[in-house]
Design a protein around this nucleic acid. Sequence first.
DNA 1: ACTATACTTAACCGAATAGTTAAATATTAG
DNA 2: CTAATATTTAACTATTCGGTTAAGTATAGT
Lengths: 131, 131
Amino acid sequence: MADPMTTPQSDTLSAAFQAMADPTRRAILARLASGEATAGELAAPFEMSLPAVSKHLKVLEGAGLLIRKRDGRIHRCRLNPAPMKQAVDWIEVHRRFWEARFDSLAQYLDELKSETRSSKETQDDPDEPAR
Amino acid sequence: MADPMTTPQSDTLSAAFQAMADPTRRAILARLASGEATAGELAAPFEMSLPAVSKHLKVLEGAGLLIRKRDGRIHRCRLNPAPMKQAVDWIEVHRRFWEARFDSLAQYLDELKSETRSSKETQDDPDEPAR
DNA sequence: ACTATACTTAACCGAATAGTTAAATATTAG
DNA sequence: CTAATATTTAACTATTCGGTTAAGTATAGT
């Protein structure tokens, strides 16, 4: 019913953030960042069961962060960076705003005035379109 | 029993990623990035109920992404960038690995050898990729 | 063919999430 | 004092999540 911004993009973003929100999954990604690994190798460091890790791999795969290449009976996994990049990009867009606001007192004061004057001249706003 | 890396840092990281994993919450952050807003103002664009948004604000606050300043009966909210920065930093650390691996075959081979030699020469811009 | 290996899927459970409506709280306005 | 405003908290529900154990599937080794 609510359906708040369910664009295809936000789905991948949501999935990526969601995937990275779990410490186990982050540890898996960290390990994967330094090279390919099998499901078993990825599971080894953890005390949880293999099926639990298998689920985590599925979540990562679902978020597009992990690519599986089945080779015989072993599943070789590697990192796919694209969704991470998307996530970083999303954050960076907004970082520009608060950096501008925190780096410069003048802009901060200007923004305070903008409640009455509404002279939003913040050079480029690539995120807040039609207003 | 599992307890996979529950350092104080990973908790804030998990909370930040978790908070950003929801489209509604990302929209709130986006709005917040362009200036302070009251809870009501933040809730307005959404079709969901006010309590629902209130909960989202609480999640964002819990993740340290939102700071509330109660001023009379209105709650003025502003963005706190710190956890976002931490999230970006976490991703970037791993991005360096796969960038090295994907951008240059030479570096890839070098990295394969680096198990014994460990001659890592990361001559890069730490913020934006080449593109 | 038989068995160990490397996984996944199924079925289940408790805890957390995301929403709802109704009630509570606190402040401002009349 | 009373009422409207701004917002949270409470109570409830449905769904998702992260884990478990048990069973299934496919390959490799003997």
